[in-house]
Write a protein that binds this DNA or RNA. Structure first.
Length: 437
RNA sequence: GGGCGCGUAGCUCAAUGGUAGAGCAUCGGCCUUUUAAGCCGUUGGUUCGGGGUUCGAGCCCCCGCGCGCUCACCA
């Protein structure tokens, strides 16, 4: 255990003092009657006819302003913040002093009383009784001071550091309410994807995470060891190989939502463990999958955001089918001026890039596939803001995908993009066993 | 893994190689409608760790640790 900070030591002393006074800092039960949002809503409707609203609320102290014989404080629960008003008239001087001296930001308390509206207009609980529910030792992270150009200082009462936010998710959640909303949206999203696929006769399965041989993608794995078998095992980098085996077993439509693990770079777009959805559909081709995909995403947007139109950063994205479809060769030609069909070798294509795009800097050792990738990510991808399917990929960057019947260098594959991000990747699967070797 | 940058009080940050500071928080006092409350006072430091240069190192040099950005890899 790390050493306590001076602030934590003060709080530990307060716990001692509470116990000395016969106050249990961690009582077993709470008696909440309303969330803060319910209390405010109920008061709003009762205010017109002067109906009294008595409630008991529970939450964490987020702010307090002691002013001698009265104290204002805010507590926050899962539904939001609410102000408390404490006065010696109802509580006695001893109780108000107790609140001010022994309770701190972050402590969980419950408070009972009557709802009213302050002079400043804020719906507030006039506290007649309160009780400590759990004394916090480590303070909630908060307060970031930013000095403005004019020299004034603005205080943000929220956790800012990206490092802390990621490492201490609970603290981020406790302090930043919008993050809680992200969690709810994520749960809705996954629920809606399940509902959609179930509705379309796809069967949800779970395949092995611990695998003796990894595959299904080009990525480095995490390695672990099975002691009893004395055998190295890998955390899956993809579900692909196991899901395909289920197709072999005549489960014609299967899907899995779960974690994959890739031992690679970390950034705001890439995490070593990430959630992925894969589905496989026997006897269908990539065009049918394209249609199903845009319907699925639109369905999810409707369920999560209430509309197929969604704000993302500065963009307003409309996921309503049909999405724009751009053939890769045409897209590259339109955005970079290079027709990859006219340059069938790496050397040839590299020469064309150097001639037509003197400012571009591709790796000269690249294969033809890598050069095409370069053109896509440099010129084409940034233009794919509204939901778009990019389709018909060059064979040399698309393992396991089936070639087009009349063009062996191009495969039946597509990727979906929105706001410049790749959303998904799909293809007509190679099913010639000899070709696969 | 490569390149660049950062690490000073609980937090956010100052400090030409010359006595380590400010605001907020903490702690104490005043204050019966505040909401970034206000006013007065107080406490708080192995300057990330180790070594070196120097009369003198938070600052310069070397090694290490941690973190950020970025490139490569990838979704």
């Amino acid at each position: 255990m790390a050493e306590y900070t001076s602030l934590e030591k003060v709080r530990l002393q307060k716990i001692e003092e509470l116990r000395a006074q016969g106050v249990e800092p961690y009582p077993t039960r709470a008696e909440r009657t309303h969330t803060s949002a319910q209390a405010i809503a109920e008061f709003d409707s009762a205010e017109k006819d002067n109906r009294e609203v008595k409630v008991t609320l529970a939450g964490r102290i987020r702010a307090s302003r002691a002013m001698g014989k009265i104290t204002f404080a805010h507590i926050e629960d899962g539904s939001g913040k609410i102000q408390l008003f404490l006065r010696i008239n109802e509580l006695t001087k001893e109780r108000v002093d107790f609140f001010n001296r022994l309770l701190d930001h972050g402590d969980f308390i419950q408070a009972s009383g009557v709802m009213f509206r302050t002079k400043a207009g804020e719906v507030t609980l006039h506290v007649h009784d309160f009780k400590l529910l759990a004394k916090a030792v480590t303070p909630l992270p908060a307060d970031k001071d930013v000095t403005q150009e004019d020299g004034s200082v603005i205080r943000y009462a929220a956790l800012e550091s990206p490092e802390l936010r990621a490492r201490q998710r609970y603290a981020d959640l406790a302090v930043n309410p919008d993050v809680r909303e992200n969690f709810r949206k994520r749960a809705k999203l996954i629920k809606s994807l399940r509902a959609f696929l179930d509705e379309h006769d796809f069967l949800e399965v779970e395949t092995p995470i611990l695998q003796p041989i990894y595959g299904g993608a080009a990525a480095r794995p995490f390695t672990t060891h099975h002691n009893e078998l004395d055998q190295d095992m890998f955390l899956r980098i993809s579900f692909e190989l196991y899901l395909k085996r289920l197709l072999v077993g005549n489960l014609e439509r299967v899907y899995e939502i779960g974690r994959d693990f890739r031992n690679e770079g970390v950034s705001f777009k890439h995490n070593p463990e990430f959630t992925q959805l894969e589905f496989y559909w026997a006897y269908a081709d990539y065009l049918q999958v394209m249609e199903l995909t845009e319907q699925m995403v639109a369905y999810a947007a409707e369920k999560v955001a209430g509309s197929t139109t969604v704000k993302f950063g500065e963009h307003e994205l409309d996921f309503k089918p049909p999405w724009k479809r751009v053939e890769m060769r045409v897209g590259i030609l339109e955005t970079s001026g290079i027709d990859i069909a006219e340059h069938t070798t790496a050397a040839d294509l590299l020469q064309a890039i150097k001639t037509k795009l003197p400012h571009a800097a591709p790796d000269p050792k690249s294969t033809r596939g890598k050069l095409i990738d370069f053109l896509v990510s440099e010129f084409l991808e940034p233009t794919l803001i509204q939901p778009t399917f990019l389709y018909n990929y060059p064979r040399d960057i698309s393992p396991l995908a089936k070639s087009m019947p009349d063009d062996p260098l191009t495969v039946e594959r597509f990727e979906g993009y929105a706001a410049g991000f790749e959303l998904c990747n799909a293809f007509t699967e190679l099913n010639d066993p000899l070709d696969q070797e």
